[in-house]
């Protein structure tokens, strides 16, 4: 469970990222956050694992405050939160398996991880995670040899190997083509349903949001202006979130 209590974020240059956010996300939900660029989607997502610090309020993850967590505690909470990025953020020269294994570092002592000696179980876990996203056979290939969609699946596998209870995905499909977009979204949905991992995704495609989400949250200028089921998120509701009518490029298109 993730709880936002009156969370605000003001950047050092004075611009406002988030404004009095109160939000509770239950276990197993697949929440899609929508909003025009600059609305604070990324800030909201990154405040959950404190990649961005908030300036006011409190965020609790699984009942523990991440806002007030000290170093070690913070890393302990982050360990349970997997993150998927728009640009994949893989180590391009390392093998796929090593990229997935890097999700395990927080489980082991610094000394052990410095030597790069992961236990057998971790390797099995990572290989099974790769199996789940159907790229087990790529385990020993360098990450930069994979296509964009495959790279994104590696980063999903990294989150799985991490045994994350929550997955945060920041525009996971923004640099993918329509076909691989669907494959990646299908993977995320399947993992969410089969393993009951709470999943929060930033998206800018409206039709994808409607198709995959169990709950849609609309942000505008750092404030929540919509919070409801996909059925409630009509075109009019989206127009309200964006403050204008929907444009063609905000639809992925294809069969829905």
């Amino acid at each position: 469970m993730i709880q936002f209590h009156n969370v605000s974020k003001t950047y050092p240059n004075g611009s406002i990222g988030l404004r009095h956010i109160n939000l509770t996300i239950e276990e197993g939900e697949l929440v899609v956050i929508v909003g025009s660029s600059g609305a604070g989607k990324s800030t909201l997502l990154r405040s959950i694992n404190r990649l961005h610090d908030i300036t006011e309020g409190d965020i609790q993850v699984g009942g523990k405050s991440i806002t007030h967590a000290k170093d070690k505690e913070l890393r302990r909470i982050r360990r349970d939160i997997g993150m998927i990025f728009q640009s994949f953020n893989l180590i391009k020269r390392a093998t796929v398996l090593n990229n997935v294994l890097s999700g395990r570092v927080a489980y082991h002592s610094t000394f052990r991880t410095m030597l790069g000696m992961f236990p057998r179980e971790d390797i099995e876990l990572s290989l099974h995670a790769l199996e789940r996203v159907n790229i087990r056979e790529k385990a020993y290939i360098r990450a930069d040899q994979l296509s964009g969609g495959q790279q994104q699946r590696v980063s999903i596998a990294r989150a799985l190997a991490q045994e994350a209870k929550i997955i945060l995905a920041d525009e996971p499909v923004a640099s993918l083509d329509p076909l691989t977009t669907r494959q990646v979204m299908d993977d995320l949905k399947r993992i969410n349903q089969e393993m009951r991992i709470t999943t929060i995704i930033n998206l800018h495609f409206i039709d994808l949001a409607r198709e995959y989400a169990t709950r849609i949250i609309g942000l505008r200028a750092g404030e929540i202006v919509f919070d409801g089921s996909p059925e409630q998120a009509t075109d009019e509701a989206f127009a309200d979130i964006y403050g204008r009518s929907i444009r063609h490029d905000e639809m992925l298109g294809g069969e829905v």
Partner: peptide, 27 residues
């Protein structure tokens, strides 16, 4: 170097040394 992998490792709960070992050094 690309900052992305460092961010990814931080998000996994890695400490400073681990970020160095797994995100900076391989690059």
């Amino acid at each position: 170097i690309d900052r992305g992998p460092q961010e990814a490792l931080l998000a996994c709960g890695a400490n400073r040394l681990q970020v160095l070992r797994y995100a900076v050094i391989p690059q």
